[in-house]
Amino acid sequence: MAESKAMEVRKEEMLPEQSERTRETRCFIPRSDVYETADEIVVVMDIPGVEQDQIDISLEKNILTINAYCDPQGPDGYSLAFAEYEVGDYERSFRLSDQIDRDKIQAEYKNGVLRLILPKAAEARKRKIEVKVK
């Protein structure tokens, strides 16, 4: 069956950083797409299993951080017989290069995919400099 190479199965686990996590669950780096159009930057992220109200998005200076918390509890009364993937929290940060209009950031969550639309600030859009060829 046709299967793209990028559709890898294993999730990447976060490497330990300087600051420690207080929760005991595992933490994964969600697979993400980032693309840019003339007016906005769009971040698309796979965070399956997370409830909508368990997503934290913050933008500090130009660092965008997404935290998503997932309850690793399995179905009640069942024991895990066979495991190929693990469930845990997600965390990822991006450094944004362009000025973002903070008040107009939009987030959508559907079927385990988070989509962030970060509109560029008007002055950043204007900052394009034309080079004239003499």
Partner: peptide, 12 residues
């Protein structure tokens, strides 16, 4: 649109 990063796969 221009991709900065493309990690999510797709296909059948």
């Amino acid at each position: 649109a221009r991709f900065h990063r493309q990690e999510r796969g797709y296909g059948k």
